[in-house]
Design a protein around this nucleic acid. Structure first.
Lengths: 221, 221
DNA sequence: CCAAAAGTGTTAAAGTTACACCCATGG
DNA sequence: CCATGGGTGTAACTTTAACACTTTTGG
């Protein structure tokens, strides 16, 4: 593919990713120490510049894999951030993404990033705090009308674990009986037939999502 | 602001805008004849390359004003399209926007674009058909839980006109009595005290939105 | 007086909320 | 037998859906 004249290419196009995980009943995101001198000492989100022959979606997967050493369960585009000074060094237009990993993946993770509770994050380098806030809001909305919660859970999970994810994402507590009635009525789950093992209380039934795709529901929870 | 080396600036960043209007009980969008040789004869959405010192939001307003001669009532970011070959000439990453104009503005419009019914559009240059479809879907969703319909109506409007916009956006008919009950219960409208004039049937009361800002509702319609 | 659109209430059904106790397991 | 979390139903209330006729105006 031909390239447009350099004079027209004002900006670098980058991706930044908010990688969510639920650990220990806390909603966490992956952060890294900012590399650049200007933002030294601050944390930031994983990200990188797109390559000449890749889409932003491909860039997200490449960056997470190559630079961060992580495979995510699901990712989706969030919004594009284009403030002229969002990166003080030079003009970078960033296409932000949300991504999700299962807790077991995060626990086994040993790359350069750290998962930290969203609540504990006071500030981030660049405009990454804005991006995080935007992703956080989107997650809160989307958990209620899609099956996005599945990407934050192990494949097989208990209804209580599922409810925990909903409560974290929505920032509210839910009634156990009503939650179960609703989620089961939606018919997006199926019983695995298996039970929890090695727990010191009554073992819970394990469920899984019927479809691994993101399903949109006619509004619920 | 310093610029990153040209070698890192692979792509041109552009904006493309889906400008909606309701004319004659039809949802329409603004299209233009494509300029480039490669897409000669096809229609496309208004758009343009961002400038060095402007955000994508600013670029949208500038492009619509300078190139199209149109002031929109409201605009919001939709999504970013980055397929490597979405523009065959060279790499263009496009940040797509939805925008809305009131019918009176569209009727008075005399610029280079044309408002054509969405239904009548079979194809568009570049990936603009994808962008339009995406905007169309978003409008359909958003009309139900926000006050976005206001940007497609004159400032003062009848409840029937409001219902028409909802029906067009949602692609379904609604019950007149139930619609009125719901929308009035939401308390987002206020009576202007004025009535329609010069209509050959019983004149309807004119309403306006209480806030000109986009308001998100706890789910409705 | 006719045509056209405005305006208005009730009832049945569905969905949502609030709420408390017994059960199975490991230690 | 105790502690821990799992699992379950019902009744009041709220919301939604379906539905038809009278009113006001201009021509």
């Amino acid at each position: 593919m031909k390239q447009a004249p350099s004079a027209l290419r004002f900006a670098v196009v980058a991706v930044d990713v908010v990688v969510f995980v639920v650990l220990d009943k806390e909603l966490c995101v992956l952060t890294l120490p900012a590399q650049s001198e200007l933002y030294k000492g601050q944390a930031c989100l994983p990200g990188g510049i797109i390559k000449q022959e890749e889409t932003t979606d491909q860039a997200v997967l490449r960056v997470l894999k190559e630079k961060i050493g992580l495979s995510v369960t699901y990712h989706e585009q969030l919004a594009t951030f284009s403030a002229v000074n969002r990166d003080k060094r030079n003009r970078v237009v960033s296409v932000a993404y949300s991504a999700f990993v299962r807790p077991d993946t995060a626990l086994a993770y040993a790359g350069p990033g750290t998962f930290v509770p969203v609540k504990s994050i006071k500030s981030l380098a660049y405009d990454h705090a804005d991006i995080l806030e935007s992703a956080r809001r989107r997650l809160g909305g989307k958990v209620g009308y899609t099956t996005i919660a599945q990407y934050l859970l192990p494949r097989h999970f208990t209804l209580t674990e599922l409810q925990d994810v909903y409560e974290l994402a929505m920032k509210q507590t839910l009634d156990k009986r009503n939650f179960r009635k609703k989620i089961l009525a939606l018919a997006v789950l199926k019983e695995t037939g298996r039970m929890q093992e090695g727990v010191k209380n009554r073992p819970a039934a394990l469920y899984e999502f019927a479809s691994q795709k993101l399903v949109e529901l006619p509004l619920v929870i």
